[in-house]
Design a protein around this nucleic acid. Sequence first.
RNA 1: GGGCACAUGGCUCAGUUGGUUAGAGCGCUGCCCUCACAUGGCAGAGGUCGAAGGUUCGAAUCCUUCUGUGCCCACCA
Length: 882
Amino acid sequence: MPELPTTYDPHEIEDRVYKLWEEKRFFHAEPDQAKKPYCIVIPPPNITGILHMGHALNNTIQDILIRFKRMSGLEALWMPGTDHAGIATQNVVEKNLMKKGTKKDALGREKFLEEVWKWRNDYGTTIINQLKKLGCSCDWERTRFTMDEGLSEAVKEVFVRLYEKGLIYRGNYIINWCPRCKTALSDEEAEHRDVDGMLYYINYPVKNSDKHVTVATTRPETMLGDVAICVNPKDKRYKHLKDAVVVWPIVNRELKVIFDKKVDIKFGTGALKVTPAHDPVDFELAREHKLEAINIMRDDATINLPGLDFDGMDRFEAREAVIEALKQRKLFVRSEPHRHAVGHCYRCHTMVEPRLSPQWFVRMKPLAGPALTAVKKGEIKFYPKRWTKVYLNWMENIRDWCISRQIWWGHRIPVYYCGKCSDPSKSIIVSKVKPEKCPSCGSTEITQDPDVLDTWFSSWLWPFSTLGWPQETKELNYFYPTATLVTAQEIIFFWVARMIMAGMEFRKAVPFKDVYIHGTVRDDTGTKMSKSLGNTIDPLEIIKDFGSDALRFSIISITAQGQDVYLSKQKFELGRNFANKLWNASRFVLMNLNGDMVKKDLCQTAKDPSLSLADRWILSRFYQALQEFTRALEKYRINDAANRIYDFLWHEYCDWYLELAKISINEPHTQMTLYKVLEKSLRVLHPIMPFITETIWQKLPREHDKESIMLAPWPHFQKAFVAKKIDCQMALLIDIIQSVRNCRSSWAIAPAKYVTIAVKVQKDDDRKTLETNASYIKRLARVGDMKVGTAIEKPAQSAVGVIRDIEFFVCLGGVIDIEKEKKRLLARIDEVTRCLSGIEQKLANQNFVQKAPQDVVESERKRKLDFEQEITGLRNNLTSLT
RNA sequence: GGGCACAUGGCUCAGUUGGUUAGAGCGCUGCCCUCACAUGGCAGAGGUCGAAGGUUCGAAUCCUUCUGUGCCCACCA
C-alpha cells in the first residue's frame, strides 16, 4: 500500500490538490438533461474585498452544499463572480490617486474610469484567489463581473423595461445624501446609529407682537432654510397663532404658521420649524401646504448663502455659529442632551444629510406583490424560518428605491437628454443605445445622464444575468431557478428581497428555492468583526497556521444553524486536531492494509458470517452516521452534520474500532472493514474537509474508476447493515471495558499490568457474547485471565463492578482496602438509588402508566429492572465485604 | 415605539416534534511518551438548564410575566 507522510502538512497537500482539481476541470458544470440541476450563485464579493471570516463561513457552507450535491449525482453549478461595488471601489481608487498627488476631478471622467479599470484588473481578483485557497469548487470558467458586457446589457434591458412600464421615474425628493461621497444613497444604505446630540430651544418672535413661539430642534443650522412654523391644530397652546406670522430675525424673512396633525404635541414645545429642503417630514408638509423649499447647502454640506456670515461654513460649524447669533439676539432659550438615531453612510460612515435633489427611483410596490406571494406560498423557504417574517414585514412596507448615484464608477444610466427640445417631457430619451438624434426634434445635441446606477441595481439581477439573460441561453433554461442562496442577515433587504422581486418580474419565477441565512461572525467578546475595529481574525493566517480543512471544519462545527459565531484563534485547533487525528488513523490503516486482500472482495453483505462483532458494529454505526449526516445537511443543520461525522470517526472508528481491529489486523474481514469504513467516511467528510480527504483517498484502492473523491458517488445508505442487536452487544462490551478500566484507575493498578477478572452473568446470551469476544476485553482493559459463567464465586481480594445483572470481579492481588471498596460501592448504590426512586415514583403514578405512550412506559420498566439488578449486585457484594 | 434572538458545568456552546442518569470542545485533576496520533490515550471532578408562575402523567424544551444581554426595523423634529 502507498503510504502517507508521517506528519500532516496541510500546505503541501492543499495547493497540490487544488491545482489538480482545477486542471482537470472538475468544477465545471454543463446543462445535462440526464441529470438534475443544482445551482448556487455566489454572493459576489466586492472587488475591493479581501477574504474575511464572514466570507470564509459563507463560502464554506456553499462549497459543502455544492460538493455534497455533486457527489449525490446532480449537475452542480456554483456560479462565481465579483461585484464592481460602485462607491467602495471609487473611494479606494480616489485614495490611491491622492497618494499619487492627484484627484479624480483633475483627471476627468474618462481618465478616472481608466484608472478604476486598471485597478480592478490588478487587484479585482484577489478575493477569487483567496476563495481558491479556501477550497471553493466554483466553476471559474463561468466567472462573471457585474460590470462585464453581458451584465451591463441586462442592466440596461431592465432599466428600459421598467421605465416603459412606468416603474422607473425621475423626481425631486428628499434623499439620503453623503456629503463625503457626494452622492445620493438609498434608504438601506443609510445606517441608523444612535448619536448623543442636543435639543435646542429657540424663540421665534411673532410679528407685530411682543410674544414669541419657542421651537425645539436638533439642527439649528437648518433654520437658515426655514419657511414656516408648524403646530398641531389640536394644540390649545397655539390657538392664538392662527393667521400669525413669525419673523426669522437673522435673515429677516417672514414665516407662515401652519397647522398639521403630523406634529406631535408632546415632543419639545409642540412647535416645529419647517425646513423642506433638509428634512423629509418638513418636505411632506411643504408639499401639502404649498410652501417653497430653500436649499441652503452645497453638495459637501457647507452652507450656501452668499452674503451671509454662515456662507461656506461646514454644517456643524454653522450650527455653533447659528446658536451664537441667536444668543446675541437673546432668542436662544436653552439646550438639553438628546439621544437620537441619525443616518450614516454605509460606506464611509459620514453623517447622512437629507437633501432635496432630482433622482431616479424605482416604484417598488408593484414589484413587491409577486415577491410577497412567492414566499407566502412557500415557493421560497427561509432557513431558519424566522427570517420569513422579517422579509414579509419589510416587503409589506416597502418604499421606492433611489437608484441614481452621483459617482462615476458604475452602470451609466441609459437616459439621454435632448438639448434642443423645449418640452421637458420630450427631452428625455430612455434607450439602451445612444440615439443618433432626438426623435422629437431631430437635434443631435444629445447628452447622457451623468449619473450611474446603484450597485445593487446590477446585483439584483445576478441569479439570471450570470446565466446569460436577456438571452435565453441553455444555461438559463437549465439552471434557473437556482436551488439555494446562502447569505448573511445584513443583506436580506439589500439583495435577497430585491433578487426575488427581479426574478418574479423578469423570469416570472423565483430566483432560488431555499435561502439559508447564517449568522454574523463576531470576536470572542461578541463584537462584530470589522477591519476598522481591528478585531478580525484573518482566514489566510488561519489557513497558514492550521490549514484550510481545519479552518473549514472548525468554523462549521461551532456555528449552529443561523446563530452568530464567536471566534478566537484558539477555536481553530478543533479542526486542526481532527485533521491530524484523521491523518494518523488513515496512516495506520494504510500501513496495515494488504492491497491484494482488499481488492479480492470489495463487496460485503451485512450477514457475512466472517465478519466479527466489531466489524458488524462499526458498519452498523457508519450507516447510522451516514444517514444522520445526510439528513442534517438537507435541513441545513451543517454543524450537526460536521459533528456527527467527527464523533463517528474519532470516538467510534478510532477509539474503538481501530483498537479492536489490531487484534485481527491481518484477517480478511478486518482488512475489508477497515478499508471500507474509512473509504466511505472520507467521502462523507469530503464536502467539509475536501483537501485531506482527497489526499488520503488517492492512496486507497478504488471501488470506482473515478479520478477524484469529489467525483465519487455519495455513499448509499444500506439499511441491512444497521443492526441494533449488534449495537447492544458491543455496548455491553464497551460498558464492561470502561468499568474495568475505572476499577483499575481507582485502585491505581499500573497501566502495563495485566489483571485477572471473573464475570458472573445471568443470561446465556451475555455469556456467549463475552466468551466469543473475550479478546476485546482482554486487549482493551488489559486483562490476562478472564472467567465467564453463571455460577462464578467472588474471588478473594477482588474489587467488584456491576452492570445491570452482570457482576465482574477484578483480582487485586494485594490486600484490598475494605473501607475504600465499601465507600466506592456505597457511592454507586446512592447514585443508583436516586435514579431508581425517580422511576418508581413515575411508575407508581397511575396517570403516567395510563397516559404516557406504551413504549415510554416500557422503557421505564426496563430501566427500573436494570437499576434493581445493579443495586442487588452491589448490595450483595457490600455485605460480603463485612 | 415595534420586531427578533440569546441566557444550560470555570469558558464557548449543542440539545430537532416535551419522555433514558442534560451532552461536546476548551480548561481543570490523576495516570500513561502502550509499536497511527502527546495536535495523543485512559480514568475522573464539575450543572437544582436566568427568575417566578402556568399547561402536562412528565418541562432545559410549550405558554405568560419579569430580569439581563445583543441585534434589526421605525421621519418624533
